[in-house]
Design a protein around this nucleic acid. Structure first.
Lengths: 220, 220
DNA sequence: AAGTTATACTTGACATAACAGATAGTCGTG
DNA sequence: CACGACTATCTGTTATGTCAAGTATAACTT
């Protein structure tokens, strides 16, 4: 956990916690005073925290009216995944044109670890989720563009909102054993078109999983 | 100009104004009280405005120390252009796969307007800048992904920071008369690889112009 | 004269409280 | 019973004042 030196940070962490726990109802407006009491700080710190959370797509703010946790819709999911896809494809493109062999080897190894995890063991699922996050962040780091990393982290918070990993991974069983290794190979194929197309597919595949969850009414 | 109903908005507009005018020195820390006096509001409204400006990459904030207009560096320019490139390439990709003929025709017309403006007339330069902005925003709109538009607008504010259009456009004289029309043609070529590559080139070309300005010491 | 301490002043951060707008409930009147 | 005005009480917004921390300057000591 970060420093809780500043009061805004304290408010941020507290609100983030209850959001991720899912205790707050979606769609209903949240009272700033209530949140201040909950976080044991003042309203103004809460407001700063809310600004940040809005920026991270975890809440939406309607001026003069308040903030709320957005109700998910298909279009919202698709839109945010679109941003994610844009950034990740750019990562793939940059890695491809840079052709950093060290990064290629490291990534291949991480990909191998991911592909070989036995998902039938429930304990492994969380581990898989962590590895997968590490995988994508490592790619972003390897581009050398720090802003890309920042933006991707900002989005990754949102996707934590529905982290029931069982559903997420189930869908991907199709071509399981080489799914991530193939991606790495395509990225480092020295052909930007192939690299980008592989990443497009990768992200879109993930989105399909989340959309299925949505259709099944996973988000109350 | 937006509603100046809220006080934060007022502060935001006032601070944005002085930033874009370039009257504030880069690198030096700005006093919140001074800004509050300048915007004729209270400190807290200024603080909210600063948070937003930080998200828009116009200022950077160092906790417990204050905010300042960042000194530009080559890496900062390249990093932010990287984000821009990611989003714009995604726009191109989506337009290509959607293949909306109406959008194609509209865009071709705007591109034609841009390509045919006589840049030797100084009055036209601002017009050109506006058209170019419209061009890119129209593309983003046509994707149907609203978030893409939001993110691009957020970034476009930053690039306004060095809007001395003479320099910007000068560089692009090379293959002038069909530069934007070619881009539109490539995007709607039905080949995602070509669409993306054309947009990569387009943005990178713009970046090269700004980097040249930077090397010439354009940003004091 | 040099170094150290004290003090006044600046800054950002924050809490409290006052303000404005909207809503819901209630009381009173037709 | 119905309907309109008033009030109590929510809400977000914002101004004022306070606090702590850092900085420069003055003052004192050796």
């Amino acid at each position: 956990m970060d420093n809780l030196t500043t009061s805004s940070e304290k408010a941020y962490q507290a609100i983030l916690k209850v959001i991720l726990e899912g205790t707050l109802p979606r769609g209903e407006f949240l009272s700033q005073r209530m949140l201040a009491e909950l976080a044991d700080t003042s309203i103004i710190s809460v407001r700063e925290a809310l600004k940040r959370l809005e920026y991270e797509h975890l809440i939406e703010s309607i001026p003069k009216w308040g903030v709320r946790i957005p109700v998910e819709t298909r279009t919202r999911i698709k839109d945010l995944y679109g941003i994610r896809e844009a950034l990740e494809v750019m990562v793939a493109y940059m890695l491809c044109t840079k052709n950093d062999r060290k990064a290629a080897e490291d990534l291949y190894q991480i990909a191998d670890e991911i592909d070989n995890i036995d998902t039938s063991v429930t304990e492994n699922i969380e581990k898989l989720s962590k590895r997968h996050r590490k995988f994508h962040l490592y790619m972003a780091e390897s581009t050398g563009n720090n802003q890309l990393l920042v933006e991707l982290k900002r989005l990754s918070l949102w996707s934590l909102l529905y982290q029931d990993p069982k559903k997420v991974w189930e869908v991907r069983e199709i071509n399981w054993k080489t799914w991530h290794k193939d991606l790495v190979n395509e990225i480092f194929s020295l052909d930007p078109a192939r690299a980008q197309e592989a990443m497009h597919k990768h992200i879109q595949h993930g989105m399909q999983g989340d959309l299925m969850k949505f259709d099944e009414g996973f988000f109350n």
